[in-house]
Amino acid sequence: MNGDEQLLRGRVYGRDHDDPDPGPLPGRTYAALTGGPLDGLLLDITGWAAREVEDGAALFTELGRFPGGRSLYVPRAGEPRGPAPGVVCRFHHSGDAP
């Protein structure tokens, strides 16, 4: 695991890396990001409609194939609930976009 990957583990996407507690918050709902440049991060999906969750997310990152572009993450149908409290699904890396 390289330094960038270590920084991402257990953090919530969009939370500042200098935040003293960049992890999940009680009462929030998360998708675990798997694969790709944001592997190990959690995405806060609190309040997302079921259709929005089904569509997945295009997340800005400097770590992907296109620095300053987006990494695409989508759920897989029928996959079991996430690995931790508050994590309701996994979004899997499906590619990068400029």
Rank of each mutant, 00 (worst) to 15 (best):
M1Q: 13
M1C: 14
N2I: 01
G3P: 13
G3H: 12
G3L: 14
G3S: 09
D4K: 11
E5R: 13
E5P: 00
Q6H: 04
Q6F: 05
Q6D: 13
Q6E: 10
Q6S: 13
L8C: 11
L8P: 01
R11L: 04
V12Q: 00
R15C: 12
R15T: 12
H17R: 12
H17L: 05
D18K: 15
D19V: 06
D21I: 02
D21T: 14
G23F: 10
G23S: 14
P26V: 11
R28F: 12
R28C: 07
T29I: 03
T29H: 04
Y30M: 10
A31C: 05
A31W: 01
A31N: 09
L33C: 02
T34G: 03
T34V: 12
T34R: 14
T34L: 10
T34E: 13
G36N: 00
G36L: 00
P37F: 01
L38D: 03
L38R: 08
L38P: 01
L38H: 06
G40N: 07
G40F: 00
L42A: 09
L43G: 00
G47P: 05
W48Y: 11
W48S: 02
A49S: 12
A49I: 04
A50P: 11
A50W: 05
R51C: 01
R51M: 06
R51V: 12
E52P: 05
V53Q: 12
V53G: 01
E54D: 13
D55P: 00
D55C: 09
D55T: 06
D55L: 15
D55V: 04
D55Q: 15
G56V: 04
G56L: 07
A57L: 08
A58Q: 07
A58G: 09
L59M: 13
L59H: 11
L59Y: 09
F60Y: 15
F60A: 15
F60L: 15
T61N: 06
L63S: 09
R65H: 14
R65W: 10
R65Y: 09
R65S: 09
F66R: 12
F66Q: 10
P67L: 10
G69I: 07
G69S: 13
R70P: 05
S71L: 05
S71E: 04
L72Y: 00
L72V: 13
Y73K: 06
V74K: 13
R76Q: 08
R76G: 01
G78N: 04
E79K: 10
P80F: 07
R81D: 13
A84K: 09
A84M: 01
V87A: 02
V87I: 04
V88D: 05
V88R: 05
V88G: 06
C89K: 04
R90S: 15
F91I: 03
H92I: 11
H93K: 08
H93A: 00
H93G: 02
G95E: 14
G95V: 03
G95D: 02
P98S: 08
P98Y: 02
